[in-house]
């Protein structure tokens, strides 16, 4: 996930400038942009990861009355680290620490980054945060539309890391009954990635018929992430943008196997251009 650059109108900047912006500490919006830039451009500079680790430590409890979202820089640093494997593997311990931060937005960014880095060390901590199930981790935070835990990101990280273990499956499975379809989609995707069992693919295909476009879009992305090829026809037929169908079908080509074969998948992609 990328955030739009706040000052894109000033034109492109160099890697040195991005590092400088992150290094200084007076202007947080500059740091925010610098962190975003390093991830977006997949910087290989030796100072990128250490500076992002430092930025990740600049966090404090949320203070909604404050006006400025202090953790924005830390969140962008976490997101950037997720894109900088293998160098960012050095930052796994920092991201694991952030997984226990009181700010759930920051926990979400850390979970996604750990998933992208395929950090096996994160499996147990993530499972701990999800263990209370849909009624605990998946319950609403009082007075907000947010859940107690960033369940979607935590579930998807487990699938991305790909550590197959019965205990992990047991933690994920109850979430296919969560009241929110986006959480059900994320759980089914992870179970499909980890177990390969068709029932989870079928659950995602059912969500392609959901009445809300947002849900159909999520199911498309999840089928693509799992590369489940039997979904070809339902993907072709669901009501959503061709751009998203193409991304999903790319996932079926690159991550899937078996029937339908590659030529059938490519023929469908050709039609959607």
């Amino acid at each position: 996930m990328t955030s739009p650059p706040p000052d894109s109108q000033t034109g492109p900047i160099t890697e040195e400038e991005a590092l400088d912006r992150l290094r200084q500490s007076e202007d947080r919006s500059q740091q925010y942009y610098g962190a975003w830039w390093l991830g977006r451009m997949r910087s290989q500079h030796p100072e990128a990861v250490p500076l992002l680790q430092q930025a990740l430590r600049q966090r404090r409890p949320r203070d909604p009355g404050d006006g400025v979202e202090e953790n924005a820089v830390a969140r962008n640093a976490a997101r950037a680290l997720g894109k900088l494997a293998p160098a960012a593997l050095a930052a796994v311990a920092d991201l694991l620490e952030v997984l226990d931060d009181p700010d759930d937005g920051l926990r979400e960014a850390a979970a996604r980054a750990l998933g992208e880095l395929k950090a096996k060390e994160a499996v147990q901590p993530i499972c701990r945060r999800l263990a209370s199930g849909p009624d605990g981790a998946g319950a609403l935070q009082p007075g907000t539309p947010r859940l107690m835990e960033p369940c979607e990101a935590l579930l998807e990280a487990l699938g991305d890391i790909g550590y197959v273990d019965p205990e992990v499956l047991a933690v994920v499975e109850p979430f296919v009954r969560h009241e929110r379809p986006l959480i059900r989609s994320a759980a089914a995707r992870t179970l499909l990635q980890l177990s390969g069992e068709a029932c989870w693919g079928e659950l995602l295909v059912d969500l392609l018929n959901h009445g809300h476009l947002r849900v159909r879009r999520a199911a498309l992305m999840d089928l693509g992430a799992a590369g489940w090829r039997p979904a070809l026809e339902p993907i072709r037929q669901t009501l959503a943008e061709n751009s998203l169908k193409l991304i999903a079908l790319r996932g079926l080509v690159e991550r899937g196997n078996g029937d339908p074969g590659e030529l059938a998948l490519l023929a469908c992609m050709d039609e959607l251009l």
């Binding site: 080509v253 690159e254 590659e262 030529l263 490519l266 992609m269």
Partner: peptide, 11 residues
């Protein structure tokens, strides 16, 4: 350059 582009060009 993702594999799907290479594959399509090969086809």
């Amino acid at each position: 350059n993702p594999p799907v582009v290479c594959l399509r060009a090969k086809v």
